[in-house]
Amino acid sequence: MSPTTLDFSLIDTAVGPLSLLAGADGGVRAAGFTTDPAELLPLIHPELRGPVRQRADLGVLTAAVRSYLAGELTAIDDLPVDQRGGAFVSTAWSVLRDVKPGDPVTYTGFAALAGRPRAVRAAAGACASNAVALIVPCHRVLRSDGTLGGYRWGLPVKKWLLQHERQVTDRGR
């Protein structure tokens, strides 16, 4: 069986371009703040990789991300995601999607939400191995002292995303 072609598109953001890679079924397989899809391919499970073709727009995916950037923070919540990991990592990724914008959690709190309160390092590892930045919002996890910690796409991007979400949620209160 030949690999599925992945559709690739760039979306301009205030902190640089966001790349999306999606399968034929529309599930996002990778997303990151880079212009180079080759930088995203190694993040995708080997069984989900394939040749890449560029598209100007990915329809519903592009529209949802643009809505998020315009202040509709829940627009990305139901986007389909296709990434694979072990049992804990998959659970952790699912839990990340429930962390609300403007209400980040600590790695300790994230580990507890994922069902393993003592597995703080494993929770951090789930964030580090997340291929679908923004849509699986690992940027919403902070160190226990409230500092940013790490982020594959750089701390300025993480800081901007958190500020964007905080500003939008503060306006809505």
Rank of each mutant, 00 (worst) to 15 (best):
P37A: 07
W93H: 02
P37Y: 03
P37L: 04
G50A: 13
V60K: 10
A31V: 07
G85E: 05
P46E: 15
D78A: 15
V105I: 11
G27Q: 00
Y68T: 12
T34R: 06
E39R: 10
A38G: 12
R55W: 12
R53M: 11
P80I: 05
V28I: 15
L58R: 01
R49V: 01
R29Q: 11
T74N: 09
V60G: 08
L41D: 07
R55F: 13
T35L: 08
A63F: 04
S90L: 08
A64V: 05
P101H: 12
V105N: 06
A24R: 13
R84I: 11
A56G: 13
E47R: 09
A70C: 09
E72S: 14
E72P: 10
G102C: 14
L18Q: 03
G32Q: 08
Q83D: 04
A64N: 06
F88V: 08
A31G: 13
D98P: 01
P46G: 13
R49P: 00
V81D: 00
V52N: 02
R97I: 12
A63G: 06
A64C: 05
W93C: 01
E72F: 13
V95M: 14
P80N: 05
R53P: 04
G23H: 09
A87F: 01
R66L: 12
L96Q: 15
E47F: 05
G71Y: 10
E47K: 08
R84T: 08
P37H: 04
L18I: 06
A75L: 15
S19H: 08
R84C: 08
L61D: 01
E72Q: 15
T62M: 14
V99S: 05
P17H: 11
D77I: 07
L21W: 00
D78N: 14
D78M: 14
E47Y: 04
